[in-house]
């Protein structure tokens, strides 16, 4: 089993951190993992990518990829602008989107190579509710990790929370772990 995960977000939303936490949590679960940011210059607010791989065996391949098993969208604006069309989602793929409940998600906005399941969570609302705000932006990356855990079943919720606390330290980590937990329970599959 080798799962390739791409996180689409905007510079400053914490996509690279989220990819790293996915890898740490997977390793805690006894899996092998890789995580890396887009290799190049990035700007705050511009569309950016972060990558992760999870496997039950040694991961041999390296480098960025454009065909994925899981696509995480940190900002639904990227769906509206069809930026999501740049990524190919494999058959049986899962797409986890940060969006409010009333927003419409159309499968035409994606490049699907087969069937895909869509999941939605209002990570922005969860971040604001928990006062997770930095430089005026709600911190959506940790709630998206909770949604990722539930939607994919790849990494355990407890491992995500543990990895979050390890990354951010006790004080900030605990608040983020609450956001992870809430998103895990609030994420819904779209039909």
């Amino acid at each position: 089993m080798l799962v390739e995960i791409l996180i689409l977000g905007r510079g400053g939303q914490g996509g690279a951190t989220a990819a790293n936490i996915i890898a740490s949590a997977a390793i805690m679960d006894g899996l092998m993992a890789q995580a890396f940011p887009f290799f190049g210059a990035e700007r705050r607010g511009a569309p950016v990518k972060a990558f992760a791989r999870i496997s039950d065996g040694r991961i041999l391949r390296h480098g960025m990829f454009n065909e994925v098993d899981v696509l995480v969208i940190m900002d639904q604006g990227l769906v509206r602008t069809n930026y999501t069309k740049e990524v190919f989602v494999r058959d049986g793929g899962r797409i986890v989107i940060n969006s409010p409940r009333d927003a419409v998600v159309r499968s035409e906005s994606f490049n699907l190579l087969g069937k895909a399941c869509f999941y939605r969570v209002d990570a922005r609302a969860i971040a604001l509710r928990n006062k997770l705000v930095a430089a005026g932006w709600p911190l959506v990356n940790t709630p998206m990790l909770g949604a990722f855990s539930k939607a994919t079943g790849l990494i355990r919720l407890e491992s995500v929370k543990k990895a979050v606390v390890e990354f951010f330290g006790e004080r900030v980590g605990e608040v983020n772990a609450i956001a992870v937990d809430e998103a895990f329970h609030e994420v819904e599959e779209l039909t």
């Binding site: 993992a33 890789q34 890396f36």
Partner: peptide, 12 residues
């Protein structure tokens, strides 16, 4: 060690 594909990639 290779730039990015190793230097900036997290692994166990």
């Amino acid at each position: 060690l290779d730039a990015f594909i190793l230097s900036h990639t997290s692994m166990p």
